[in-house]
Amino acid sequence: MDIATVFDDVKRMNKRQFFYQVLSFGMIVSSALMIWKGLMVVTGSESPIVVVLSGSMEPAFHRGDLLFLTNYPEEPVRVGEIVVFKVEGRDIPIVHRVLKLHEKDNSTVKFLTKGDNNSVDDRGLYAPGQLWLTKKDIVGRARGFLPYVGMVTILMNEYPKFKYAVLACLGLYVLMHRE
């Protein structure tokens, strides 16, 4: 199929067919959004799937691995769990393991984290003056693991041109593909 026939295809489409293609494209986008938002409701986490971006948890997690998170408020945080947390002043959430934890009887809890591959705990990564994390810092807790799959998003973020090329190809394909 060369370029000329592709444009021939578009020309031969009438208005009705064109709108149908646009609608099915919108359908794909909105169902992806629905799945993401639905996962947010089911898992209770604001970001139910994260991609590991650093090597600080090697050899367990490498760059580009995918983690599935849950964040149920009634589930207590315990030592040894892998939590994903946000620190004030850093946009990217961090995936590290809980090293120490102190819980008061009114169930307020403070904890300290450390990356498996780091030699020191995370106090240097927290906001200046912050010694502990609390429950409100947690984005989620790692429950499931899938290797390599997140590599695609890392590639897209590092090479924006590649991202636009992929998006353009997908968009063109969906708009022009005739059943």
């Binding site: 367990a60 090293l99 819980e103 008061k104 498996d116």
Partner: peptide, 23 residues
């Protein structure tokens, strides 16, 4: 099983904290 991460936890109660866990 790619890897086991072993950790030894000390768990105890103090008057100020109901639960303390230290790896």
């Amino acid at each position: 099983v790619k890897q086991l991460f072993l950790y030894l936890t000390a768990e105890y109660t103090t008057p100020s904290n109901e639960l303390n866990q230290v790896v």
